[in-house]
Amino acid sequence: MSALPRTVLVTGSTSGIGEAIVEAFARDGHRVAVNGRDEERTGAATDRIRAALGVVPGEVFPAPGDVSTAEGTDAVKSAVPDVDVLVNNVGIYLAAPAFEISDDEWRRLFEVNLLSGVRLTRYYTPRMVEHGWGRVVFVSSESSVFTPREMIHYGMTKAAQLAVSRGFAMAVAGTGVTVNCVLPGPTLTPGAKEFIANTYDGMTFEEAEREFFVSYRPTSLIQRFSRPAEVANLVHYVGSDASSATTGAALRVDGGAIPTIIP
């Protein structure tokens, strides 16, 4: 357990990587806010996590609100006025031919994947500076530096997170607050499971996984989907006291999918 219990907000945490991040911090004794757009789904995820971990209400609690909008962000700020650790995890991805991505789709991914984190970082980080300690983590992607041709709008938002994270890190230099990006590779989230099922109809999951990594991610060194808990392990470290000398960084948990040593 860390030296002090912290208040942690994980956006987009009703499933997948976000849910695993909530569980990692809650296991470590922290007070963690679960966030989703829908109040009912957010509450259900909170109950599920509490039951899985055996934590009492209050250690894991709901903070619903669509952080891709100013109104939804205000709702989250009301539920969680101050945080010590902000994990900007919320994100969506869509596959589409490069020349068929509409203006609305470009805007939607920008609002959800990038501007949501900017809004929350702009609000919470000055309060962290006042306290002399804080952690901001952007959950980016290997697509930020190795953009798939079928998801260039997604890759754009994830690349922008690297610039935003580094810029905020420089803005709080020397304050005890750190800002970093974590770059997962292909991860077995509900969305990935749905994609596999739709793309490889009639195959077993094992067969489909092998085919996916041959066709879509041949550079992966682990040749499998990472599990959400494996990504959460790195996010938990970056959000801890132990990571005090790590800031302004892009940290990979991509299974070796990016074919370079340094992002």
Rank of each mutant, 00 (worst) to 15 (best):
I262D: 14
H236Y: 08
V235Q: 04
G72C: 04
D74T: 10
V83L: 13
A52C: 03
E150G: 01
P97D: 15
V214P: 00
T246Y: 00
S15K: 11
S144W: 00
S141C: 12
V76Q: 02
A250Y: 12
A242W: 03
V179A: 07
F213M: 01
T11C: 04
L120R: 01
V60P: 00
R217L: 04
P5M: 10
T204D: 06
E206F: 03
A229H: 13
R227I: 01
N233K: 15
R50I: 02
A98Y: 09
V32K: 10
R37L: 10
G54T: 10
A159N: 04
V83D: 14
T147S: 12
R252C: 12
I49P: 02
V90F: 00
F168C: 08
I261Q: 08
D84V: 11
G167Q: 05
P148C: 06
R217H: 04
E206R: 07
S116W: 04
R149H: 03
Y200W: 15
E40W: 05
M156G: 00
S15N: 09
R135K: 10
T46D: 13
S102A: 13
T189C: 08
L4Q: 11
D84H: 13
A26K: 09
L234V: 12
L120A: 03
S240R: 04
G18T: 08
E59H: 09
Q223K: 15
R119A: 02
A70M: 06
G43H: 13
A95S: 13
D82R: 11
R210W: 09
R107F: 00
T46S: 14
V139T: 14
E230C: 13
E206N: 03
N113W: 05
A163Y: 07
V8S: 15
D74N: 08
L234M: 10
A3S: 03
D104W: 04
T125C: 11
D38T: 14
A24S: 11
M1T: 15
P263Q: 13
L120F: 05
Y237M: 05
L162R: 05
V129Q: 03
Y200E: 12
D66S: 07
P57L: 14
Y93P: 01
L53K: 12
T219I: 03
P228V: 12
V214G: 01
T246D: 01
G255Y: 00
R224N: 02
E230W: 14
R252V: 09
V145G: 03
R127N: 10
E100M: 07
S144F: 01
S116N: 08
T7F: 09
G16A: 14
P62T: 10
